[in-house]
Design a protein around this nucleic acid. Structure first.
Lengths: 271, 271
DNA sequence: GAGGGCAAGTGGTCTGACCAGTTGACCATC
DNA sequence: GATGGTCAACTGGTCAGACCACTTGCCCTC
């Protein structure tokens, strides 16, 4: 019996989601004025306080510009919104995945990861290398030994991949921690939150990368020895693997996706 | 006559700022429970709606966890907050600058910038190179020709630097646009917002980088010719210049700043 | 000791009112 | 014609008080 907690969204959250989807989806163009708060209250059938909470959040996200006495106008999220908008961009309400956004996330990951590994090797405090090694050992235990050497073969089960994905997140969290860079830290959180709506798709897509335990170990060793160049190179190679996998998946859907508006891949296409 | 619009902060904004400062500053530890909404209402002397709007925003920022019927608890922003938190981390309410955060921003900039330039050269649409070249021409006009070749000499006035900084932002905005990567786009916005509280300090600190018009031109040319490697290399060299300047500035304050809690440099020390 | 029930306290929603600022039309003045 | 003042009708901002929905923990029953 597999149960999961029922999702309970407050009214203001629902209003926020609806308006955000309208803005990000293009239903409300930049510069356009939103209906007055009292109009929204009536149109949505909710309290004005709920509307205001949602609008305040939209303002914080950089999606609208509120002016006392004047109208509330939509801003251009491409120039005003921050990285926290990623989750809203990656998937639509239907569960569709935007390939262009997925590719973007992979590219950013592949860019920052190696630099974080480099800095981690430079600055990491002593016990860090051991912690990383311990995580790699755990990854090794999840897989039979043969699996990490035979590439391409789907030797890992669904549960194994999920376990590996969890360990992988913790691995990179340690690397980021050791890099001692707050911006990377926060960007890492944003990327993780941005990938969250993918659910089980991510481990499946990154299977080759997750199963590459030796590469993880190389990074851990390089960090232990303070070898920045080796850590960076190993990380670059490892993350490139996942990026390539994603690109390959997306290519199967649409070889050259236009930037905006993006062609969307249904979830089932990624399975 | 130099006038600027008077800053008018709403009550809920003030509440938000106050609570955010408490959380980020460590006055409210992670896991700790906030006072009840009605208590805050009384303690802050404001309406409950204002408190709720602030709490909703704190929740969105990943700073608190709200549970219906239970207490509102502080989360660990280092693992929960996104990149949009940068501005709050960079400067305290007193206007002090956190050197560790400044360094982090510079490092992230120096990491993403070159990759964006690379992708821009790969994917940039045709007129982009010309737009970049036009911006570089504008930068050239701001400075006397000699200035861009003589390094280190403070030949640029305050106004010239401000103009260069503006052109530089627009330059990179075009590069990011050409890179066709939403994540970079949003991270760029976050970094710009994060640097905003620095005000005039940034152009001063990055003077050497801003005055390096030839490097900007090299990037523009590489993008025009689709030479990804050249664009990346030129961008790396250019951005490293600014990073080095910041590190040098911070070194004058504190050569080895501990990660947390950070030693702070007063604004005047950076002048 | 285990389980259920109750009460207090929490966040969530609603209503209605008033304050504060913007906008635009209109008008008097220069 | 340009300028500035006045006013009404919007807009968002704040407030008060009530009630609903949920969690928590104490207390009683078994």
């Amino acid at each position: 019996m597999q149960l999961q907690p029922v999702a309970r969204r407050s009214v203001s959250d629902a209003v926020f989601d609806q308006l955000q989807a309208q803005i990000v989806g293009g239903g409300l163009a930049a510069g356009e004025a939103l209906p007055a708060e009292r109009s929204l209250t009536e149109a949505l059938g909710v309290n004005r306080q709920a509307v205001r909470e949602a609008l305040k959040r939209l303002h914080q996200a950089g999606l609208v510009e509120i002016s006392h006495g004047g109208a509330t106008r939509v801003r251009d999220w491409r120039t005003a919104a921050g990285l926290d908008l990623l989750p809203a961009l990656l998937t639509t309400a239907d569960g569709d995945v935007d390939p262009a956004v997925a590719r973007s996330i992979m590219e950013m990951r592949a860019c920052i990861g190696p630099d974080a590994a480099r800095l981690c090797a430079l600055r990491g405090v002593t016990p860090l290398g051991l912690d990383l090694a311990a995580l790699v050992d755990e990854m090794q235990e999840v897989l039979p030994v043969a699996a990490s050497t035979r590439r391409g073969a789907p030797t890992a089960t669904h549960e194994q991949l999920a376990a590996l994905a969890d360990l992988d997140w913790r691995f990179w969290e340690l690397v980021i921690e050791g890099a001692d860079n707050v911006a990377y830290r926060l960007a890492f959180n944003s990327l993780r939150a941005g990938s969250e709506p993918l659910g089980e798709l991510l481990p499946l897509a990154l299977a080759d990368e997750l199963r590459d335990v030796p590469a993880h170990r190389t990074i851990a060793d390089a960090v232990s020895e303070g070898d920045a160049a080796a850590a960076e190179a190993a990380a670059r190679g490892l993350l490139a693997k996942g990026s390539a996998a994603i690109v390959a998946l997306l290519a199967g859907v649409d070889p050259k996706a236009p930037p905006f508006p993006p062609v969307r891949a249904r979830r089932k296409d990624l399975r």
